[in-house]
Each structure stands twice: as C-alpha cells, then as structure tokens.
Design a protein around this nucleic acid. Structure first.
Lengths: 162, 162
DNA sequence: GTTGAAAATAAACATGG
DNA sequence: CCATGTTTATTTTCAAC
C-alpha cells in the first residue's frame, strides 16, 4: 500500500505519483482541490503528502524567484579542474556557503566540477571569479561558459520512462 | 514603497527581501509566522507576497522531490554542438517536452547547449541518448559528463553582493 | 494594522477491505 | 490491521474596514 513506514519506489501507487506531479507544479493547491483531481478525500491526500515528506520523497516546498527580477541577469556555467584531492572539503563548504552559486556538481570528464553562478553583470562575475576562483589554491584551471538563455529550468521530476 | 503597481528592484525594501528569503526556504510558512520573524502584521506579509507574485518576482510555489527516491539516480550533463541554426526551434520544443530533461541552456564556448538529464541507470541514459540525441539531425556532436554527486542544488536566489 | 467570515489544515473517530 | 472517508476543532487565509 501507499502509506507505510518507509516509502519505497515500489510502495508508491498511482495516487502518489499523481499527487507528486500536482504539487511539483503547484505546491499551493489545497488538499480538497488535489483530492477532486485524483478522486481521493482531502484527508487521504494529506496523509499521503505527509508520508511522502516523512520518507524524504518530498524534500520541501519552496517559492521560485525570477533571478532577473532581483537584478541577477548574468548566468554562467563554470567548469573546473582541481589541483589536489585534499582541499575538496573546504571547497565544497565554500560553494555551499556562496550565495552566488546555485548549483555545484562533481562530474566525470575533462573537468572535475561544474558550477552555476548568478551575477548582476559580466563585471560583477569577473570580480566574483577573481575573489573566489583565482584566489583558490584548490583549483588548477577553470573555464567559463556564459548562459545566453535558459530554454528550460524545472524542478519537476517524473519516474519511469526507462 | 514596497507595494506599487510594478515591483522594481529599487522598490523592494528590506522587508520584501527578508520575506523572499523565508519563502524560498519554506513556502509553507504562514503569514503570521513570517510576520513574527520580520516584525510585520500577517496582512502586510500577505499583501507583499501577492505583489511579489503579481509582479513576477515570485514565479510560483513548488514541492521539491528527491530524484533518487523516484529511482532517478543517474544524472548527466550533456553538452552539444548544433549542426545548423534552422532546426533550433524544433530542438527547443523537444527539450521542453522531454521529461528526462530538467534543464537546458544556450551557452557560449566550445558547445552551443548544455542539458541536465535524469535517468534510472547508465543503460537507460544510453537508450535515451540513442533515441533523442543520435537520431537528431540538428546536433553535430555531443559530450556526456556523468554527475558523481551534487554538492549543491538550490532554487534560492539572493540579490546584491555585487 | 485590526476585525470578522470563509476556507484550509489537523486531529479524532468510525468503517470497510 | 491498515488505509479510507467523515466529523470536529484549530489554524490560516482572505476581504472589508
């Protein structure tokens, strides 16, 4: 069944998947409104949402803000090669703390890390790079790609499809 | 003032910024709870939130789901070089429609596009690549980076800092 | 910013598979 | 026994002042 101590992928039924799809698109929907769409009582919807939260399937509800409306219209994708393995933890903490960095990934290939960095302008980004990147002994080299436009950005995740 | 017909960066005051920070971390907070934190009445918080939504600063509220909990534990970063400019619109629509693609950016540098692709496994990703990428005449070449781990992923945006 | 009505959430209870 | 739906109480949202 859907509601159990540990929510596994197998224990999630069609109701849970439809509820997930709905709240990923709009977390402000009421239990009643969701229930009408999936044919379930508001209570059942609530219990399932709580279980999904408790089991970590739903990490939380957040408001999405348009970066451009806050003056952050310059987005870059920065790739790195690291100098040594040792300083990784410090670098990791620094990226997590840095508000300009929205995403940080450890990747395979030519580079070791990829960062998504928000800035108000090219000049502001350059300044950030000098302060955060060039001054960092953990980094051997880095390459900046300017993001011209974001064709797609979604926080939505859907299971299956192979 | 903060509340006006068109919310500009200049018209946003410290209250708005603090409210934004709060709802970006947790959109389920009540107006009262937010008001207590920023020293404002629930009504004021509500009116400011409505203005921020109306002006497109707040794009919406969404539930964040852990991809791994849906079986999507294989994440890749795919870079492309396009074959021709003409087919771009079709490609764009395809990426937006494809549920495996969570992000798509047009970028400067060696490649023209960067994609974030979620799959259940390397094999599933390979299959997706064969179907979507290799069969696509708009793409000259592509390079896949496997994401070992995501050190940071946040939807949060904060203004200023240069 | 305060007040009162409507709505949504949360908890308690009862029922059916 | 576990999940569902119903009922009741509480909290939150919404609109008028």
């Amino acid at each position: 069944m859907a509601i159990c101590a540990a929510m596994e992928l197998q224990t999630m039924d069609e109701f849970d998947r439809r509820i997930l799809a709905i709240v990923q698109a709009d977390a402000s929907r009421s239990h009643q409104s969701i229930g009408e769409e999936v044919n379930l009582s508001p209570s059942s919807v609530r219990r399932r949402l709580q279980a999904l939260r408790k089991d970590g399937v739903i990490l939380g509800e957040v408001a999405l803000v348009d970066p451009a409306k806050l003056g952050l219209s310059f987005l870059t994708l920065v790739s790195f090669e690291k100098e040594s393995q040792r300083i990784y933890d410090a670098f990791r903490r620094q990226m997590i703390a840095d508000e300009a960095v929205s995403q940080c990934y450890s990747v395979s290939g030519e580079f070791d890390f990829v960062l998504m960095v928000h800035a108000v302008s090219p000049a502001a980004y350059e300044q950030w790079g000098e302060r955060v990147l060039m001054a960092n002994p953990a980094l051997k080299r880095y390459s900046t790609s300017v993001v011209w436009s974001h064709t797609k950005f979604t926080t939505r995740v859907t299971p299956a499809q192979g």
